[in-house]
Amino acid sequence: MNIKSLHHICIQTECYKESKKFYTEILGFEVIKETPNFHKRKYNTWLKSDEIMIELQTAKVSTNLNEWSSLNEGPVHISFLVKDIHIAYEEIKSKEYNSFKLKNGKEIYKVENGYLFKVKAPEGTEIEVRDQQGI
Results as ranks from 00 to 15, higher is better:
32 I>L: 05
63 T>W: 04
110 K>T: 09
32 I>N: 01
106 K>I: 09
107 E>M: 07
50 D>K: 12
110 K>H: 02
61 V>P: 00
80 F>V: 06
63 T>K: 08
112 E>Y: 09
28 G>R: 02
106 K>R: 15
17 K>G: 09
26 I>G: 03
38 F>Y: 10
98 N>H: 10
62 S>A: 12
86 H>R: 13
90 E>I: 05
74 G>C: 06
57 Q>R: 07
89 Y>T: 04
40 K>A: 12
80 F>R: 01
84 D>R: 02
56 L>E: 00
71 L>N: 14
98 N>C: 12
93 K>H: 03
93 K>E: 09
26 I>L: 09
19 S>I: 08
49 S>W: 01
69 S>H: 05
113 N>E: 09
53 M>V: 03
40 K>W: 06
25 E>N: 14
55 E>A: 12
52 I>V: 13
97 Y>R: 03
86 H>K: 15
53 M>L: 07
17 K>R: 11
54 I>F: 02
16 Y>G: 08
113 N>H: 14
19 S>G: 07
91 E>N: 13
96 E>Q: 12
92 I>P: 00
65 L>R: 01
91 E>V: 09
75 P>M: 15
31 V>H: 01
76 V>G: 05
19 S>M: 05
34 E>P: 00
15 C>R: 08
96 E>P: 04
51 E>S: 13
53 M>A: 05
81 L>W: 00
63 T>C: 06
109 Y>R: 03
75 P>H: 10
18 E>V: 07
38 F>C: 06
79 S>N: 08
107 E>G: 10
54 I>C: 01
40 K>T: 11
34 E>A: 11
15 C>N: 09
115 Y>P: 02
92 I>D: 00
31 V>L: 03
115 Y>I: 08
21 K>C: 07
104 N>A: 15
46 W>Q: 05
104 N>K: 15
61 V>R: 08
66 N>V: 15
48 K>T: 06
24 T>G: 05
85 I>E: 01
15 C>L: 10
18 E>A: 11
23 Y>M: 08
95 K>P: 08
45 T>Y: 00
89 Y>D: 03
80 F>N: 02
27 L>H: 00
18 E>G: 02
30 E>K: 10
74 G>T: 06
49 S>Y: 03
71 L>Q: 11
43 Y>S: 07
18 E>L: 11
54 I>N: 01
94 S>E: 04
114 G>W: 00
99 S>L: 12
82 V>M: 06
104 N>V: 13
